[in-house]
Amino acid sequence: MGDDATAARARDDAALLVVDRVAIGYRRQGRYLPAVGEASFQVRRGEKVMLLGPSGCGKSTILKAVAGFLRPSAGRIVVDGREARSRAPTAPWCSRSSTSCSPGAPSSATSPTRCG
């Protein structure tokens, strides 16, 4: 029983989302255009996080990569212990029609939160 409790505590303390040295860019007319230079942060279960910055700084681009719609040029994204590697959505709480994610509420997996 002690091992189960220890494993549960470790799972609860583990980061739900890890964005580790992620760079994202696009190819346009044969040229690489960086959208996100290098981003790193972690979100633990129960935490609420807001990405702030001026227009065009890469907030939505990072969320699209977290959701699995974009592949980072460098770095890694880990969602709930699994490394996001494909273009298929990796985060069940993210909506293809929106760039907002709500990992704090499990019910949002069936009803993603949209922000204006």
Results as ranks from 00 to 15, higher is better:
residue 35 A to K: 09
residue 102 S to W: 11
residue 57 C to Y: 00
residue 74 A to T: 05
residue 11 R to G: 07
residue 95 S to T: 00
residue 25 G to C: 02
residue 105 A to Y: 15
residue 15 A to I: 04
residue 74 A to S: 08
residue 78 V to C: 01
residue 54 P to L: 13
residue 65 A to V: 08
residue 69 F to H: 04
residue 15 A to K: 03
residue 48 K to G: 11
residue 82 R to L: 09
residue 23 A to Q: 03
residue 112 P to L: 10
residue 28 R to C: 02
residue 65 A to M: 08
residue 94 C to R: 14
residue 50 M to V: 15
residue 8 A to Y: 10
residue 29 Q to T: 11
residue 21 R to T: 11
residue 32 Y to R: 12
residue 85 R to K: 15
residue 46 G to F: 00
residue 5 A to E: 10
residue 50 M to P: 08
residue 109 A to W: 08
residue 106 P to Y: 06
residue 102 S to N: 15
residue 39 A to K: 05
residue 29 Q to W: 02
residue 103 P to G: 06
residue 37 G to L: 14
residue 52 L to T: 08
residue 96 R to P: 13
residue 34 P to Q: 03
residue 47 E to T: 03
residue 82 R to E: 13
residue 9 R to G: 04
residue 100 S to D: 13
residue 97 S to R: 10
residue 116 G to P: 12
residue 59 K to H: 02
residue 115 C to D: 10
residue 68 G to K: 00
residue 94 C to P: 07
residue 2 G to D: 15
residue 92 P to N: 11
residue 62 I to C: 01
residue 57 C to V: 11
residue 72 P to C: 03
residue 51 L to M: 01
residue 63 L to V: 04
residue 8 A to E: 13
residue 14 A to I: 00
residue 113 T to H: 12
residue 7 A to P: 02
residue 79 V to A: 09
residue 92 P to W: 04
residue 87 R to S: 13
residue 35 A to F: 03
residue 11 R to D: 12
residue 99 T to G: 08
residue 92 P to T: 02
residue 5 A to L: 15
residue 80 D to C: 06
residue 54 P to S: 14
residue 102 S to H: 13
residue 9 R to A: 06
residue 90 T to Q: 12
residue 16 L to P: 06
residue 10 A to I: 11
residue 87 R to A: 12
residue 15 A to T: 06
residue 99 T to A: 06
residue 108 S to D: 15
residue 69 F to I: 02
residue 99 T to Q: 07
residue 21 R to N: 08
residue 6 T to G: 08
residue 53 G to H: 02
residue 20 D to C: 07
residue 100 S to I: 09
residue 61 T to I: 07
residue 113 T to Q: 14
residue 29 Q to Y: 09
residue 55 S to Q: 04
residue 113 T to Y: 15
residue 13 D to Y: 03
residue 28 R to D: 01
residue 95 S to N: 03
residue 34 P to V: 06
residue 72 P to D: 05
residue 42 Q to I: 06
